[in-house]
Every structure is written in C-alpha cells, then in structure tokens.
Design a protein around this nucleic acid. Structure first.
Lengths: 336, 336
DNA sequence: TTGTATGCGTTATCAT
DNA sequence: ATGATAACGCATACAA
C-alpha cells in the first residue's frame, strides 16, 4: 500500500506538500500538484481513512443501530426501508454506515454508547429501540449526536424523525365512524413503543368526537407480531361480540387478526372491518387487501440521515422531522 | 475521552503496562492489573479502535457490498435476509459490518476495491453483483479477501457461497413432468446472473431426461422484476398457446406472471401451472400460493460471513459453501 | 510555495 | 514485571 510518504519520496517533495496537494489546498504550485497527483496515480495510492480519522478525530462514519434486525422480522419491511433511506442519503455524502444490531436475545455486554465510542462513529441513528430500554436515556443524554426513529425525544445532541401517529390514528377513527361503525375495538401494540401510545390516544380522541367511547375492554394488546394480533382480535370479539370494526396498531397484527377471524368464520369486511397501520408490503397482497395508514418509511430513514449529517457537518441543532402519512383504503373495511 | 495515557498517569504506571494489562497479557502483576482495570473503569475508558487499527493494520471490519439495495427491491426480501445472516454471524465475532451499496444509478466514481482499500476493511462480502460488472474480476483477482454470494468463482483470495441452482431447477423439471406436463415454458432472468444460466441448464436437462424439449421459443427472458415476468409469460403463451406449465426463474417474476395471466382470464393452476424460485415472503401470501424452490437465504449470508471470517482469522483457504434448497409445493401448480 | 516537527492513541520491540 | 521508545499514516502549526 502506497502512502503519502512513498509519493513524497518519488516526487521529490515533502509529505506535507503531498498532503496539501492531494487535499486541494490552494497554496501549492500547480506544477508540483500535477506531479504529485500523477505519481499518486502511478503508485495506485489511496488514502488511509483510518490514519486520517485518528488525526482528525472524525471517522466519517455513522452508526446505524437497529433492533429487530432479526430473521423473524424480515416480514416487516419497515426496517429495511428505513435502512435504504438512510443509506441513500448517506451515500450522497462522505459518510459510510456501520451496522450495529441488538438482538434482544444476545445480552449485550456492551452498551450502545460503548459500541459507538469504540468504533468512533461520528453520530448514530437508532431504530426500533423500546422505550423501556435501559440505554435509551444514556443515548439521549449522551455526547454522541444521534437521531431517533419514532421516539419523540429531543436532547442536547439528540433529534428524532417520526410520523404523526396521533393524527394517523385520528384519521382511522374518523374513517371508521364515517363508515357508520359504532361498535369499535382496537388491537394495540405493547406499551413500550411510543407509537402505541400515540395511536391509542389519537384513535380514542377522534372517536370521542363522534360520541363513541373506546372503553378499556375494547382495547386488547398484542406485541406487534402477526400471531399476537390474531389472539388479541379473538379476545376482543369474545368480550364484545357486537364489534363491527377493529383498528390494529400494525399491519402485521392486522394480518394476524384477519387470518384468525376468517378461520372462525367471520367475513371481512362484511362482518368485521379491519384497519391496520404501516402499509407494509404484505398489506397489498393479502386477501382482502388491507386498509391501512401508509407511512413514508423510506423517508423516515432518509430524513434521519439528513438530520444527523446536518448536525454533524453544519452544527445543525438537534430537531425533529415529521414525515407524511396517508390513509390507504383497500378492501378490508366497509360500511357497517 | 480517556486514553491509556490518562490511565497510566493516574495509576502511576507506564502506558505499556496499561496496554498489556487491558489486553490480558500474562506478564503483568495481578495487583497492578487490578489497579489499572479499576482506574480504567473509573475514567470510563474505552479503547480507540481506530488507533488500534492503525498500528495493527487490521480494522476488524468487513464490508458488505450489496447492489440492489434500493427502494424498489424491498419486495424481494432476499437482500435483507442475506444481510441478517451476515450480521448474525458477524455479531458473534469481533467484526463489525460496514455497508457499501451500489445503486447502478449512481455512477460509482470509486471502484469497490477503492472503497474497501480506503476504509481498510479486512474482507468483503459481495451480493447482487452482475456477472457483467466490470469490477467483478478486479475483486476476484484482488488482494482483499472476499466472499461472493451466488457467483461461483474462486480466486486466490475469493470464495463463494451459493445454492445448487442447477439441482433446484432440475427438481422443478422433474416435478412438472411428474405432474404430467409436456408443454412447458420457462421465464428466465437476464443472462448476467449466474443463477439464470444454471437454472436454465438444470431445467432443460431434467426435461430432456423426460423426453421433453425446451426449445428456444419456449424460453422468454425477463429481468427479475415482477412486471417483466408478466410480460415474458404473456409472450410465451402467445408463441405457444398449448403451454400448460411455466417455470419462472424468480418468485417475483412468477408473481408478475400470475397476475398477468389471471388478468387475461387464465386460471391458475387449472389452466396453467406456475412454479417460481426463491421462496420470497410474498409467495406464501399471493393467491394461489406459489409453488417454488426455497433457498436458505439467511444461511447464505450466515455462511458467507463464516467463510470470510474463517479466511481472515484462521487463514482458511477460500472455498465454496453450498446451502440447501427445497421444493415448496403450494397451490399454483397441479396435474395437467 | 515548501519543509520540519509534532501528535492522534495504540501496539510492539527491546531494554532493564 | 515494567518502562522508554519507535512505529502506524496522516494533518497541521510553525518556520523558512
């Protein structure tokens, strides 16, 4: 591997000059620069980013910390879409991405911050972390610039990107009420996700507006998995046989609910309307097509990277970015 | 950020001793070690991997080079599953993953090898690269240890993981012939993928065994997209109206074919049997469920990481690893 | 416009 | 068992 030292020797200049020439400084003679660039090419030189990082104290890498990057979750293309967005923006910049993952299974012997500190990432994007994660605060209060996905917390060095989950759920409420439903239930995700809390609030509030009360026995909790959605939906119908519409806080749970209900002989949407949240890939393919709130997941990742890199490169303030959502009406919902 | 220097000062020893103590060398007094470890904790020390990399000439990172990590491809969970496998194995080791991506759109100003050289990755896993990619040879002949996914080429520092595409396609041939089909067509992917070539060969050869000839006008090429699969299938039926079974070289194309055929009034599998390849997530959800060859995609990634890291850590020879495949019979195929 | 010298945080060599 | 010192490859303050 050729170094600037080799170039210097070959070109008969000092390493300082080589460094400056290659980095486009103005105070270097055009002729010497030309010669240097030439010999650099000749020696097939490529800069050693590691050495550069060491002296610059900037690694030009951002960490992408994702939980739920596990086999079982591949169904949910949420993660991959966010990653794609992050990657697309980052690849327009000088930053590379290093992947950190946390299977909840492997007890992490190292905390996030430790991982980040050791690898010297300049900043980090965090996705899929639970609100009860012991390290969440450590991250938000920490020194490492970070952007959270779907966790609305701002710190000294922490911003976030999210969608307006309250508004999205509100729209579902309006929509179902508009279809004439009055006996409505909700399958929510676990309480350790901000989105669960928001979606519940928004849904509840919009129904109240329509004089529909979402009492506690009309709310059943799953944990965002397909299977749990089915279970929760059945529970819901057992407690409230009159229910004609169910809002599920995630598409995966909605799909689980549909499967479970169909197997019990319910027709969708004739007997029960189902609405999901996320607009994952599958929701378009299941039978019937799932009515849901579409989020710009890709945009979530893209904006996260943009926000973080802005914080890094231009000392931008940590802030929030809200990306859009939209109700996608398909065939799983109908007038009562 | 505390460094070993700080620890040395505070503990009243030399940096050499600190380094050795922290790295578990045996030639350091237990008491001094204890003191050093203590003050390290006290100062909230974490090693600077960058400095370490510089002197060790090992970055303990592997590059994950994926093409097709783009928005449109999210459907195809192949990429994400491979990545998950890679990640799962790597996370058991000391290696971190840095993500390189090549949208064919962005003209890469830097070649793969350049990216790898600059970031000083110790090795690289390459996925989704086309056989006509100008840099493929550069990689295989290059000095950087690498493992290719689904490209059966071995070099001095290059191994690969793949499935037996020939055998998989062969089984499809046997299967369709066994169902009584004699008028059979194939929708292949583009020629710049090894898998296309292999799948074609395997399919053709197995049919020959059954005295069924797959003439050229019974082969129509798509480019692995859903839409192209639909187009190719229609073309096929136009040229050979008697066709009763179509083997598509990817599930996505098979799904496109099903959609297109259904829209033309063909019933599947009553009129036409469709078989895919890949067993992507969707294939289980479309109507009818798609018969296909399932590959252990996760295993592909897992084994790739394993092979690469073996090459890195134990100077393992570059070699190949073949992961299993299996015919998944669903409802898109039936007796003629 | 160019060169000298120093340091980034670590590991490794060679003394002691 | 421990410490001085020299690397690793690069950027930069300062001098010339």
């Amino acid at each position: 591997m050729a170094t600037i030292k080799d170039i210097a020797k070959k070109a008969g200049v000092s390493i300082t000059t080589v460094s400056r020439a290659l980095n486009g400084y103005s105070d270097v003679n055009e002729d010497t620069r030309k010669k240097i660039v030439e010999t650099a090419k000749l020696l097939n030189y490529s800069p050693n980013t590691i050495a550069r990082s060491l002296v610059m104290k900037k690694s030009k890498t951002i960490g992408l910390l994702v939980s739920g990057f596990i086999r079982e979750n591949a169904k949910d293309n949420f993660t991959i879409e966010v990653m794609t967005g992050v990657n697309d923006y980052a690849s327009q910049t000088a930053y590379d991405i290093v992947l950190f993952t946390t299977n909840s299974s492997k007890q992490r012997e190292k905390t996030y911050t430790q991982l980040c500190k050791e690898r010297k990432v300049d900043g980090v994007i965090i996705q899929g972390i639970r609100t009860d994660d012991p390290y969440l605060d450590e991250v938000i209060e920490g020194e490492i610039p970070c952007v959270l996905v779907d966790i609305p917390k701002i710190g000294k060095h922490a911003g976030y990107v999210s969608t307006d989950n309250y508004a999205g759920a509100w729209e579902v409420g309006e929509y179902l009420a508009g279809l004439g439903h009055t006996s409505i239930g909700m399958v929510n995700g676990h309480e350790f996700a901000f989105v669960s809390q928001e979606r519940l609030k928004g849904f509840k509030d919009s129904l109240i507006q329509k004089d529909i009360k979402l009492s506690d026995d009309r709310i059943s909790n799953g944990d965002f998995t397909e299977e749990s959605g089915g279970r929760a939906a059945l529970q819901l119908l057992e407690d409230n046989p009159s229910t004609t519409a169910i809002f599920c806080a995630s598409d995966l749970m909605a799909i689980g609910a549909m499967t479970a209900l169909k197997s019990r002989g319910y027709r969708i949407p004739e007997d029960i309307s189902i609405v999901g949240y996320d607009n994952i890939l599958l929701s378009r393919y299941v039978q019937p097509g799932l009515t849901t709130i579409s989020q710009d997941t890709y945009g979530l990742g893209y904006e996260a990277a943009k926000l973080l890199i802005d914080m890094l490169d231009h000392e931008g303030e940590p802030r929030k970015t809200i990306v859009l959502h939209e109700l996608m009406e398909r065939d799983s919902s109908a007038k009562v």
